[in-house]
Design a protein around this nucleic acid. Sequence first.
DNA 1: CTGAAAGCGCTTACAG
DNA 2: CTGAAAGCGCTTACAG
Lengths: 341, 341
Amino acid sequence: MSSESVTIYDIASEAGVSIATVSRVLRGEANVSEATRKKVQDVIDRRNYRPSSIARGLTSKTTHSLGIILPKLLNPHYAMIFTGAQEEARKLGYTMSLFPWSSLDTREYNPAAMLAERRLDGLIVCVEYLPPDHDVQVLSALHDLRQYMPVVLIGCVPPSYDFPAITNNSAAMMQEVVRYLTGLGHERIAFIGGVEEDRDPLRRDVGYENGLKDARLPYTASYRIYCKGTTEAGSAALNQMLDSLKPEYWPTAVIALNDLVAMGCMAAARDRGLSIPDQLSVIGCDNLFCAPYLYPPLTSINTYQQRTGARAVQLLISGENKQETADWELVERASCARLKP
Amino acid sequence: MSSESVTIYDIASEAGVSIATVSRVLRGEANVSEATRKKVQDVIDRRNYRPSSIARGLTSKTTHSLGIILPKLLNPHYAMIFTGAQEEARKLGYTMSLFPWSSLDTREYNPAAMLAERRLDGLIVCVEYLPPDHDVQVLSALHDLRQYMPVVLIGCVPPSYDFPAITNNSAAMMQEVVRYLTGLGHERIAFIGGVEEDRDPLRRDVGYENGLKDARLPYTASYRIYCKGTTEAGSAALNQMLDSLKPEYWPTAVIALNDLVAMGCMAAARDRGLSIPDQLSVIGCDNLFCAPYLYPPLTSINTYQQRTGARAVQLLISGENKQETADWELVERASCARLKP
DNA sequence: CTGAAAGCGCTTACAG
DNA sequence: CTGAAAGCGCTTACAG
């Protein structure tokens, strides 16, 4: 157990040198004679001595540790981002700590204080759309944090945010998805999930409406339901939509905010005896590991999350203040089909 | 950006007091007059000052940060453990950092040095079965680490390990699963996944064989395939097994190491036109979020991962040196059915 | 109630 | 090549 740790003084006295010399062999500096280096290294090995990164950090003003804030790790989407970031950080000699979203939540406890105190070398924040009041508080917490460490954002970041970021151009993505479905002959296309709020130009709602316009289809409010990004919410939302419409007006295709919502929609449809994709096409987003194993395999959008995470780390380390757009690709599987006449 | 940070000296001089006094109001000590407290707090607020946890850690010998090592976060099983641990840590005033399994891998780079240097207040390690040579190295790395911080293990920990731990009694779990399947009339029961190695009494293989014995069924080597815990490995393993046997000897039920392997088996079965559960029952383990949404919904075992993660944090903080057993529960869904005569 | 001073375990010029 | 000393930003007795 962590008894009184051995310090650089112990090593120095045991080796009969000064602590400066121990420090030098520790950091592999050249200007140490081979004889003393060996003498010191032997003591280090024998005592299994590890210098305290705490003390080192005090002097060197750098901790070699990065942080990342995710809304929720239980959605594998975020686990992918984290994994990509962590692997890149490791390559560059940094460790990566994960903090819960509540670290930014000014509504409870003190906002980003704990984070600021940690003096990380940088922080990545995955942002989601939030209700406007909460959004304002988060933005302010981010600005405070920035006084202490560089911050890079990932996600649906409006260009107006003055942060380096990896942005999803959700509008373009969405427009393409609608084009894909209209190309399959669908005209009653629903969109389920997300937050109903003020509209920045990257938002999916904008892309959804533009996609409909491209195909000269009407925007039907009944086909747009907002809900949380969970399977349960997806099920409930689709049920609610179908209950509220005569069957001849039911959508023939539904776009889900993410794969979780899509899974919920598929389950709800199956429970009602609707066959997918024959009677209802479903498309998700995030291309979770389980998408190919659902029934039918779920068409989704690969957003290259691991690459995004890695890129965010690079931006953090390099200090470039730029906003990049993440790549994405529609992955066709069996859950979407041409509309039967 | 992290310009020259404001320090306790800045606050002290600006407020016209000593740094000791600033320190006192920072930590909310009682023996400060209301007047000076307010004076100091005003300066703190105005400068948005956050004391450095690095400097604080040097003095107080505690960092209030815990670590956890997971084999891979992309399996939601581990995301659940992490989430449970993180939430509990937060409640107790600690942060939780995630380190990759490679931190313990003596075969690359220096073993646990980076971890030891961090002077965490404690470390949780999720262990899996490993090839014996690797296992020995990991165990030695854990012992070295222990010199610097308390360690708690989660997973398949043999009682011979002298570590506090939350243990899975996999043997008992497995025996029960076999009982469940024989109760449904199955006699040709396959077990797919895991590492073929020396056998400690908690291992699933032991439970598998005991379960067969209980039902007076023969152990059939052809029904036991070892493979990694991934969907791809699960598919390949089942295909390999079926290819090697005449159809009349095919298993009627397969136990998968975890839900990922089970998903792979289900996909392989479907690709061969085998219907689940009519021609093949499948049971997984871990009860991943997607299990109810597969087709058919996957019978699995809930191992209460979040609770396990939280409990590990409690053991770490309390310093109790005990090994507890994690709860588990078989969750029946549609992927297992009574054998048709 | 408040301050001067020592100390936490390192690194980094500065001498020699 | 090596050591004495100052300093990193805090906390904690110890005086007063």
